[in-house]
Amino acid sequence: MENYIKIEFPSKSCNEAFARAAAGAFASQLDITVEELADIKTAVSEAITNAIVHGYAGIRGVVEMQCRISGRTIEITVIDKGRGIADIALAMQPLYSGSDDEERSGMGFTVMQSFMDTLHVESQVGVGTTVTMTKKVGAIFDD
């Protein structure tokens, strides 16, 4: 199957729930298990939260989400044009938080990495961040 969606929305926290629900609904076109669907929604929630909390940290911007189905693989791309990440390797370390809020757990990238098959982060300070992640689903439905 080949299909895609592209949506954009302002960087408001209330759109986190919308974005993960939209990604989940789109992924549901595939034969997919309940657990795989939950994994995708959780990973999307982390990527969108990062874009809103870190990318646009206190300022309003636009978050774009693209979801693409290619065969049995779903690819999700989350793009912000916010402040960017200076040190991607550091930001991706478990428990590292780029926020002053001491109750951000610093687990966002770890969740994305664990719940998806691949995770790729591109970022430039002052330009923005693009997070791309993929997951092959539905192997359980084979034969």
Binding site: R20, A38, K41, T42, S45, E46, T49, E102, E103, R104, S105, G106, M107, G108, T110, V111
Partner: peptide
């Protein structure tokens, strides 16, 4: 019905 890593921060705190 759903929790992401924001909930981890709430629990640890």
């Amino acid at each position: 019905s759903f929790m992401d890593s924001s909930g981890i921060g709430v629990l640890i705190g």
